Simulated scan of single mutants.
Amino acid sequence: MTDSAVEVPAGEVPVVEDHVVLLEEDGRPRGLAPRATVHTEATPLHLAFSCHLVRPDGRVLLTRRALTKRTWPGVWTNSFCGHPRRHETMEQAITRYAQRELDLEIRALRAVLPDFRYRAADASGLVENEVCPVFVAEPVGGPRPSPDEVAELRWVDPADLDRLVEIAPWALSPWAVAQLTALRGTHWLSTSGEGSSLSSLSPLVSADDCPDGSPVGAGDASRCSSAAPSGTT
């Protein structure tokens, strides 16, 4: 799923052009829903991605979500996230969001957590429920963020980012905390280090359940939504 276009069963058509791909529990596409209204207190499982941008000097881009965002407004998080559309590959979707949200090109894209999955609720009760492969890329040039998407941004030293996750996880989005915790101790910061090329990724599969019932990849309970605070942002 991460290296090929998303295909939806015959008979399913986009409700609107800007849609998300709904998923069965085993990760198979089952339909489409408008992106603008899919997030509720009972958000269905759907396909997404997270991308962390790393400069050649090793600094990682954190962005603060715009105050007008429907979910987690004003919360600091990873560089950018998004949802691939039907017939769109992950690489195409990530490139599209990098241009739309940060007005930049990317290179050296690779997957570091291809089976990441999480469920979390924000302070208002709105839920994210995503199969969300995690990628790392190198930016080409400097970001020029869209104010509709990004309120602020900072290039952060990785050691400072690790400390932030440890002492103030509530300051970041729950998915960023879970991802950074899972990536600790790996060579994910190097765009030529550990990770999977897009052409070698195996399909996403159903994973073990967390103690709170929210599924997560690789059977790692430390990556459950319960491992990161929800409803505190």
Rank of each mutant, 00 (worst) to 15 (best):
T2Y: 04
S4T: 15
V8K: 06
P9K: 03
A10E: 12
G11V: 11
G11N: 07
V13S: 14
V15P: 15
E17R: 15
V20R: 06
V20W: 08
L23H: 01
G27W: 04
A36R: 02
H39P: 00
T43C: 02
L45Q: 06
L47H: 02
F49K: 01
S50M: 09
P56Q: 11
L61Q: 03
K69N: 10
V75K: 10
T77R: 13
T77E: 00
N78V: 07
S79D: 10
R86Q: 15
T89D: 06
R96D: 08
A98V: 01
D103K: 08
E105M: 09
A108H: 15
L109A: 08
R117F: 03
A121K: 12
A121D: 10
D122T: 03
A123V: 09
S124Y: 04
V134E: 06
A137E: 10
A137F: 06
P139H: 07
G142K: 13
P145W: 00
S146T: 09
P147I: 04
D148W: 10
L153W: 09
L153T: 02
W155L: 08
A159T: 07
L161Y: 09
D162S: 14
D162A: 15
R163M: 12
L164S: 04
E166S: 11
A171S: 13
P174D: 01
W175P: 05
R184C: 01
R184Y: 05
G185H: 05
H187W: 11
H187E: 15
S190Y: 05
T191H: 05
T191R: 08
T191F: 01
S192W: 07
G193N: 11
S199W: 03
L204H: 07
L204A: 10
V205C: 13
V205I: 12
D208T: 13
G213S: 10
G213H: 08
S214D: 10
A218I: 02
R223T: 14
C224K: 05
C224T: 04
S225P: 13
A227V: 06
A227K: 07
S230K: 04
